[in-house]
Design a protein around this nucleic acid. Structure first.
Lengths: 230, 230
DNA sequence: ACAAAAGTGTTAGGCCTACACCCATGA
DNA sequence: TCATGGGTGTAGGCCTAACACTTTTGT
């Protein structure tokens, strides 16, 4: 038998952190999953995550496990819900603090085949281990809510992007279609986009304007309180 | 020495649930606190809460502890953040899942002096135990955010209320002043208020109209998606 | 040549905001 | 009689939503 050296007067649950990692390939929202190598739910797909160590916060745990399991280093994850159903893990009582993060797909490719991590489009998600289906549903809802208030979409795009890439992203996340002209106007009126290059003199009608996110203007705007409506 | 009969291969944190209970007395938002009877932070004020049992969810724990410590039974609490700083409790590693709930002050009076629970107006909050100051700050932010999207304010008011009571509540939560006519128009246009009584024939200009919250109309509205803007 | 991508502007309707007067009551 | 609370409507500005054509490029 294993040694069990950590003893308490009352029963303690195990605590894990899980990570729902969103990416965007220009067309669809994708989610990063790993295939479990051990029981329970061996060979099933699940979110990267694992047991919290006694000297780290749940956020630190989420980032550490993410890197260990997928090679992906992110600067920030955001917790969004704690799942505590009594029987959500067959091994022992486990509560998990679920986090999400947005990453640029381009910056990640490395981790994919070295590890057993893979990106899945939202409509191709396999059946997931534990209660991870539920975690995903709630994560997607949070993402939808949040993108209406903060320009988090830019974290999913390359630094320089076209207006239609941005529109595609919003349409993919919110599962809605927008009128192109209205979307342009709304985004430009917000004032948080800067043109990323001189428009060449020989600008054809066909070459799209490149933008970048203007964090400085956004900070000013945020102070005053604002809201993106869709 | 106490017996320590619950043993694990790896160290486990303790898990607690805490409750930020909001009430409204017609003028100001209040919060329910209890005075701690034991160390650590003996005699300091804190949110009701306590250790999760191994066979209950964090939400069940929150409701149980709330009732044990204040006599207050609530049907629902909502978790809003999990605090996991490594040293937030001097006894052992404790992570807490913080919840909030809105209650009608009128329905609570019982518990107050039997227990050592007391209501505090937001500007009279004493210094709190643990990291409960931080928990309160975040709870208040969530409340502000949420009241702009869902008519949770009605949970704080008596079933039948006047428009100015409702306006006072919104002004207290959001710490803003609204134009009375605009507030009336906005609320009535939403269509989630019903007049609670016949307007008497001898209606004087001075007797206010009584309303009640119309959950049915709200449910219809919610399906279509809506938003309260302030 | 045709389909697909991208740039561009106007109009009508709805919503938000700001604002003032009258009446009744209680002190 | 005066202060307070409460009911009520309008006008201007801003935002939103709907909507079409032209240019260019690649096939």
């Amino acid at each position: 038998m294993e040694e069990k050296n950590y003893c308490y007067k009352y029963p303690h649950p195990a605590v894990t952190s899980d990570c729902v990692i969103f990416g965007f390939d220009g067309v669809a929202i994708k989610v990063l999953l790993i295939q479990r190598g051990i029981e329970p739910y061996k060979d099933k797909w699940a979110f990267p995550g694992g047991f919290m160590q006694i000297d780290e916060t749940v956020e630190e745990c989420a980032k550490r496990e993410l890197e260990e399991e997928t090679g992906l280093k992110t600067t920030s994850v955001e917790q969004f819900y704690t799942f505590s159903d009594v029987n959500r893990d067959p091994r022992e009582r486990v509560i998990t603090v679920a986090h999400y993060a947005l990453v640029r797909l381009e910056e990640v490719k490395g981790g994919d085949d070295a590890m057993s991590a893979q990106w899945f489009a939202m409509n191709e998600i396999p059946s997931l281990a534990f209660d991870h289906d539920r975690i995903l549903r709630i994560a997607v809802n949070r993402l939808k809510e949040r993108i209406c208030f903060e320009p988090i979409g830019f974290e999913l795009l390359p630094e320089i992007f076209t207006m239609s890439a941005l529109q595609n992203l919003y349409e993919a996340i919110l599962e809605m279609k927008f009128d192109r002209r209205n979307f342009y106007n709304k985004m430009l009126k917000l004032g948080i986009l800067s043109e990323a290059e001189e428009r060449p003199k020989n600008a054809s009608r066909r070459t799209p304007i490149k933008y970048r996110f203007n964090a400085k203007k956004y900070a000013e705007l945020k102070q005053k309180g604002f809201r993106l409506e869709f």
